[in-house]
Write a protein that binds this DNA or RNA. Structure first.
Lengths: 338, 338
DNA sequence: ATCACCTATACATACGTATTCAGAAGGGAC
DNA sequence: GTCCCTTCTGAATACGTATGTATAGGTGAT
């Protein structure tokens, strides 16, 4: 392995000492402008880059953040949640802007992730992404806090007081989606998703749904609610279950785009068209605009979410006490709702 | 920042010296089994993890690989290429299995990415992902080679001799897709994509397309070829161009799923159904199975591709001279081709 | 019993940076 | 001209690991 130039090489070329190089490059005010200029020129000439390992070792930090995806289904080659994937690009980008690197990891909830990262000094802080059972990883969150590890979670903000979270305004999203369907004259709006507190995000969307109905003086009808996960298959099966039940419905609000698309497929399979049955999803994944008909959905802004996660985490690392953040959502109307 | 235990702490607890701890943990044969067991127990007890910075500094390597995405459109908040995103999960996973970390970065082709990574010792090697103009970054590849940086590229293997590549069998994919359409009785198969050598992958698919036609004693007809990029809009526009041209066609082979879906939308907009016009795409992105009708496509296996990239790169890092690899593709027949 | 030899461990050191502390050079006030 | 103060730079050192070299303890042969 050929070795690059060190700060000593720069020092020699610039005619100063190594510490001066370090100071000059890190912007210390105690270096004169003339010296700094010479050092920068020398560094440029030799293509010098600070050695991250040495720097990290000395300052006891890595200037790296870790993203941990939780995805129980991954062993079977399943895809990561599209929403998280769409966060990835913006996260990387914003991280770079803030002077941090981003390390990605995919974990099973059951593994020992909670000790892996800070322990090996790979990352200064952790971003946790994952649907999945909130309850199940609660004890591990407590351990993280006990160790003083900095972390931010994507999820529901109001349900628990553990750790800092960034989330979309799920309640408002559910409200907007439902209000939109009501404004189209729909009255029998099925809800595909779960009101299980293990998935606080879905629960909030359900609450928003109920709130919108009540605002229109309609009492939520449990027979219009089908418990379902967020996958295409589950969305399809949820709709089939609804049909078996025999409950009439003229619209569907699904807690994820993928489930909404699954429901549309099931509808089309039995000859009920969309938007005769109006459909609204949640997330605005790339496939939403590619479906037929294109899906009306509640968009979460991935860039904004990514930046909020990064900013919040960095604030925590640098000693602040960042508040939870709830990000606005935006109803994106396409053809599936008429 | 609370500091974790060091190898000295383990040494004290196990009653040995620090070097012995290091050797025991790295599996050196010159440590007796009894000692190794004691060390491991002590390490376990204190939740000891090797400090990556110190270890990397000492051994002059990071045990980290970097993935560089190239995406010119990203500044506008566009999405990363779905195919690359689907590589990400499997790459992270396989990296972990091989004992490496994965660092993600998104770059503009124009930036100085070629000096950033190895220079700062952040990564032992680089994986380059990106459609985009191969010609444009050729000089930078040459610089990478000159510096002795290890890297692997995703792309076309046969077009250039620069660097090691891993690619799908694009030619065979084009052949299979076209043969499939021919077997369905189609004779006027439009090709949406580009035969520009700046995109060697598309060129190879075009060649496979021609090969299949000739095998059926049909001479490729240039008026059936529309130059197009891989986006939904470009696919739609390509089809509109084809219609303006007035050339008859009964099938479409598009070089990307997204373009294929765009073409389907354009078809549906003018009332020509799918699969009356049969459509085949390329990539098998998640949205392919969600479209209406579900899209027949040439699937590239993301897991296999990811593992090939990682394995090839690690082989290069560890001193080998890995060969280029061409991965098999698989035609996935769905409803869009009849 | 002496020596050679092998095994298992300890000692010393290097990796490249950032920081504390001390000191040199220069300027102003008396 | 002396003294002090400010501004800048250099010397020394610590971060935690891995490894080359030295050494202790044991075994077997002569």
């Amino acid at each position: 392995m050929q070795r690059g130039p060190t700060s000593f090489d720069i020092a020699a070329l610039a005619g100063v000492s190594q510490p001066t190089v370090s100071r000059a490059l890190s912007g210390s005010p105690s270096v004169s402008e003339a010296t700094r200029a010479r050092v920068l020129a020398a560094a440029e000439e030799l293509h010098y880059k600070v050695n991250k390992n040495a720097s990290g070792l000395r300052r006891q930090q890595s200037r790296t953040l870790a993203v941990l995806f939780f995805d129980e289904e991954l062993p079977e080659g399943a895809e990561l949640n599209p929403l998280y994937l769409s966060l990835l690009g913006p996260m990387v980008k914003h991280c770079a802007e803030c002077g941090y690197d981003l390390l990605i990891s995919i974990q099973q909830l059951s593994s020992d992730w909670h000790v892996d990262y800070e322990d090996s000094r790979k990352a200064d802080g952790i971003i946790l992404l994952g649907y999945g059972d909130y309850i199940e990883y609660l004890p591990k969150l407590e351990k993280l806090i006990a160790r003083g590890t900095h972390f931010v979670r994507w999820g529901s903000g109001d349900e628990s007081q553990i750790g800092t979270t960034v989330s979309s305004d799920n309640d408002q999203g559910g409200f907007d989606a439902t209000s939109h369907l009501l404004s189209k004259g729909r009255r029998k709006i099925a809800f595909i998703g779960s009101a299980d507190p293990g998935c606080p995000e879905f629960l909030e969307r359900w609450r928003g749904y109920c709130r919108a109905l009540r605002a229109a003086r309609i009492e939520p009808d449990d027979s219009l609610r089908v418990d379902s996960g967020p996958s295409e298959r589950e969305g399809r099966e949820a709709l089939e279950k609804l049909l078996e039940r025999g409950t009439e419905f003229d619209a569907i609000f699904a807690v994820s785009d993928v489930a909404a698309i699954g429901a549309m497929h099931a509808l089309q399979a039995i000859g009920r068209g969309v938007p005769e049955v109006a459909v609204v999803g949640f997330d605005d994944i790339p496939a939403a605009s590619l479906s037929s008909p294109p899906l009306t959905t509640v968009a979460q802004d991935p860039r904004q979410a990514a930046e909020a996660l990064i900013d919040t985490l960095i604030m925590a690392i640098e000693g602040g006490s960042p508040p939870n953040r709830v990000l606005p959502v935006k109803l994106t109307v396409r053809q599936s709702s008429g």
